[in-house]
Simulated scan of single mutants.
Amino acid sequence: MSDSSRPTIEITLLDRQYVIACPPDEESKLERAARYLDRAMQGIHAQGKVVDREKVAIMAALNIANELLETQDEQRAGEQSLSELNQRLEKALSDAPGR
């Protein structure tokens, strides 16, 4: 498929339009991600400390990456807790009288 025939979608980030190649079945995910990124960029831009679009995008990307890593850490901790509880339950069941 040539570049000119690839499906695209238009997104808006910090009041600027971008045309992005995107398979039709992924459009809603891309639109959702673009809205999330745009809100993050708007928030940084609204503070007035960072004006350059590239720097705003980098700060937003760093903030989102930090959110992702914190969420992954919380998920791993939750999985570890579940694993420990499962081991305690299995031990309690195996130590139960009548087994």
Rank of each mutant, 00 (worst) to 15 (best):
S94G: 03
D15L: 01
I44N: 01
S5C: 07
P7K: 15
L30Q: 10
H45A: 14
M41E: 01
E79G: 05
I64G: 00
G48W: 08
T12A: 11
M59F: 02
R99A: 03
D15N: 03
R99C: 04
N86F: 08
P24V: 09
E67F: 06
E79Y: 05
R99G: 05
R35T: 11
P23N: 03
A77S: 09
M1F: 05
P23G: 04
R39V: 07
A34W: 03
Q47Y: 01
L68R: 06
V51K: 04
A33P: 04
E90K: 15
E27G: 02
Q87K: 15
S81Y: 08
E79P: 00
P7A: 14
E74R: 15
Y36W: 05
R39D: 15
L93C: 02
L89A: 13
E74Y: 07
N66D: 11
G43F: 10
P97I: 02
R39N: 13
A65E: 10
A57C: 04
N63H: 00
A96L: 13
R53K: 07
L93M: 03
M41F: 03
L85I: 04
L68K: 09
L89D: 09
V19C: 13
R88F: 08
M59Y: 03
L89I: 15
K29A: 08
E70Q: 15
K29Y: 12
N86I: 07
T71R: 14
A92P: 01
Q17A: 13
R16S: 12
M59K: 02
S2Q: 09
Q47W: 01
L62K: 06
D15P: 01
Y36F: 09
K29T: 03
S83K: 13
G98S: 08
E84G: 00
P7V: 10
N66T: 14
G98H: 08
A77C: 04
S83R: 14
Q47T: 02
Y18M: 09
I11A: 11
I58F: 03
Q80I: 06
D38I: 09
T12P: 01
Y18E: 11
I64T: 03
Q72R: 14
L30C: 12
I11S: 07
R16H: 13
I44E: 00
V50W: 01
N86A: 12
H45Q: 08
Y36G: 02
P23V: 04
Y36C: 05
S2T: 12
L30I: 07
R88A: 13
R99L: 11
S81A: 13
D52Q: 05
A57S: 02
K55H: 06
I11H: 09
D38R: 00
E79F: 00
A46D: 14
S83A: 14
P7S: 15
G48C: 07
A21H: 15
G78T: 11
E79C: 04
D73M: 13
D3R: 12
R16I: 05
A57D: 00
D3W: 07
I64N: 01
Q42P: 03
L69G: 05
L68G: 05
D15H: 02
Q75A: 13
N63D: 02
V19Q: 14
A65R: 11
L89M: 14
Q80Y: 06
